[in-house]
Amino acid sequence: MYAQMVQSTGTLKTREEMDERERAFQDRIDAGEKIEPQDWMPEGYRKTLVRQIGQHAHSEIVGQLPEGNWITRAPTLERKAILLAKVQDEAGHGLYLYCAAETLGVSRDEMTEKLHDGEMKYSSIFNYPTLTWADIGAVGWLVDGAAIMNQVALQRTSYGPYSRAMVRICKEESFHQRQGYSIMMKMAAGTPEQKRMAQDALDRLWYPSLMMFGPSDAESVHSAQSMAWKIKVSTNDELRQKFVDQTVPQAEYLGLTIPDDKLAWNEEKGGYNFSEPDWQEFHDVLAGNGPCNADRMAARRTAWEDGAWYRDGLVAHANKRAAQRMAAE
């Protein structure tokens, strides 16, 4: 899941407050129909989706950086090939998602500029560094694992192009998660140094992974409208609980310790009790004060600015060719 704290435009209306078109729209959503680009939709629905899909796309793009950080240092040729394929997939996900957002009338370039201006966000998780090779395993296991929780649910989202993008993305993400876990298995069963790297990666990435689901439902001001529109289909807390319940046995299997003294099975709720992440840290990261925010944004802006001559060159060439064709006709 790569969208957090997406502001929902429009306040939740009762049926009486809706006009006729809004009621018909809500009825389609309630009946489980998909909304397609040519269909009428409330402006708030469109804007909220652009924010959410755009943020998700940006996260895929920025997410190339922490993983790309280890491609040149991957410890075997096979691990290097797997990581390259993974990062290529992430960039491909960015492409589908930008295309899905473009069906809502906003161009990729516009969204890119908003990312660079700080007007649009990307997931907080990518503001954390990848410090050892075990972090590449932990990113696949935990970060992709958390992403899948949300994305599996989003396959049922009401907007057709977004829902279809999620179906494709989920297939690849579960593959990535297995590959990440495979790295963790090697590390956890390896030399004392490798075990130390594995535990250290879990210690550093556990709470940031929990933060990926966004703040607690009680504080999540944007959820109600997005849920009514089925832009969101599960609450932050539901998904976080599912993630913890899935991940704890996996950590046990690895012989690693989740850094939470309060972690305990709760028979009554059929899930684990666990500690909340430090939400102040989450807000600090979103405000730009995470360990890597400045570097990530600088890298993206530099790539864009340094690449301007390339993009301009291609456009100029296409224009020349078009002019030649016109002249020849």
């Binding site: 920025v62 491909g92 492409l95 890298a299 301007a308």
Partner: peptide, 14 residues
């Protein structure tokens, strides 16, 4: 591979 995430356009990253 050193270009990963730094290319001039997304299609080039891919």
């Amino acid at each position: 591979s050193e270009w990963c995430g730094h290319a001039p356009v997304l299609e080039e990253d891919i």
